[in-house]
Design a protein around this nucleic acid. Structure first.
Lengths: 251, 251
DNA sequence: TAGAGTTAATGGTATAGACCACTATACAAC
DNA sequence: GTTGTATAGTGGTCTATACCATTAACTCTA
């Protein structure tokens, strides 16, 4: 019996460090889960198994799993193993993001009016969130959101990705932004981080929303990530406090 | 030269495993931050420094710091060091946690003052949510929530379950509601449905929160379910808009 | 003085090994 | 059948070490 000169290098791990090994493994495992190869409740290969398969240290494999645990994709049970987690209930928060669907569920006719659509330089806080240089070009889309022709929110999106210039030619009064992104630009919104706070309506939005200056509004900021976990949108929205309620399911 | 029988045990770390070393160190560091010994922006001892001070491995010290980073208490900058983070009053909505745990994670001292604790008849909208008859008895608990003695929210809970009368004897200034429910009444909060809207502060809460009447606030209503999916609490909370932010992770 | 190189310290990654606590299973003893 | 017991596998913790990438301060040079 002759040993092979070197163990076969498993698909997907490249040791010539373009990216850390643990990160490559993490993304490999994420892919298995995302594509349904491994289903919720199923056993993930053990740390020792992974370390042997990919010829890496157990601690390195463990680091990959650690991050997946903290992201909620898998969970561990001591003595038993590591399992694929059930998709979170929070995942069903499409009501929070999808304005169009949200309104339809409430039996209202959603519509939009484009207030601004142009190329601008990214402000510092936006650039930081999108992981680009401050002042780099981004596409700014500002829309007034209505339900049954009643103004409900002003949403300002700043987008950055390859080919974003094409957006300037789109008709966002007719087509939803996410719909266009998915079908024409291969950008699929996969997850988002959103913050909600109470504020007073400012001068700029007061006219569009048809409320008095100083009226309470819901102010949300959202960073949206695509299927490869790249941030592509920074959205700043102001909702009328007297008309809008967010619904969240916690577990 | 004679070696001491055992190296001097640094204050706070006990190697006779009541708890993992990294956990003990983590709590030590959390204490330093919570008590203000280390202030936001200040440099935390480096990983190598910690490992020498406490005579532990660098990887162990690193694990303690890792968890503090993921809790948002500190942040790292490669080549510079690890720093104490600015406290953010951001409530994560991806998990179901009580106010007390939430504040503790942010290294703030949570406290409560009981404004009301009595038996009342359930109003119609509360009864509907708790699936009981309107007018049925419920325990009403109204608390002022503070962080570092600063008023943050007024929370009104109405509870209904077998043995709820016992709650009237509890000291909720000292003990958290969910803690008491879990340990004494076998009620474990399992999931919740929460709504968030912007509103103006009303007369009733204005005094307790120390804001002006009409100031923007976050108004949330929550129905909480126990381990058997029975609704046991209807909670109505008003958070100061100038101090509080909700954070949601969407996928 | 301005710039370029050096150096020391930091966090980031990775390895190899060790022991513990817990779980499930197989198998022997009752 | 039931009850222990041994065993192997799993995640949990910990050590010791090594090298890399980035930062900041210092030093030397033009």
């Amino acid at each position: 019996m002759v040993e092979p000169l070197s163990k076969p290098i498993m698909a997907g791990i490249d040791r010539q460090h373009p990216l850390p090994i643990y990160y490559q493994l993490k993304e490999l495992l994420r892919e298995k889960i995302a594509t349904g190869v491994w289903k919720p409740g199923e056993l993930v290969p053990s740390e020792r198994e992974l370390s042997e398969s990919y010829d890496i240290s157990r601690m390195t494999a463990r680091q990959a799993l650690n991050e997946l645990v903290s992201e909620g994709l898998v969970y561990r049970e001591q003595g038993r193993g590591t399992f694929v987690a059930e998709p979170k209930l929070v995942q069903r928060l499409s009501r929070l993001t999808g304005y169009t669907d949200d309104m339809r569920e409430r039996a209202l006719r959603p519509s939009s009016r484009v207030l601004r659509l142009e190329m601008v330089e990214a402000p510092l806080h936006v650039a930081a969130m999108l992981r680009i240089q401050a002042g780099a070009p981004v596409v700014l889309l500002e829309r007034l959101r209505l339900a049954d022709e009643i103004p409900m929110a002003v949403e300002t999106s700043q987008l950055h990705f390859n080919g974003m210039e094409g957006l300037l030619q789109e008709d966002f009064a007719r087509n939803s932004l996410y719909n266009v992104l998915t079908t024409k630009y291969d950008i699929t919104p996969a997850r988002a981080e959103q913050q909600i706070e109470a504020a007073r309506c400012d001068q700029h939005r007061q006219g569009a929303l048809q409320v008095e200056v100083g009226a309470p509004v819901l102010h949300t900021t959202r960073v949206t990530f695509d299927q490869r976990d790249r941030p592509f949108e920074y959205a700043d929205s102001v909702y009328r406090g007297d008309r809008y309620i967010f619904h969240v399911e916690l577990t």
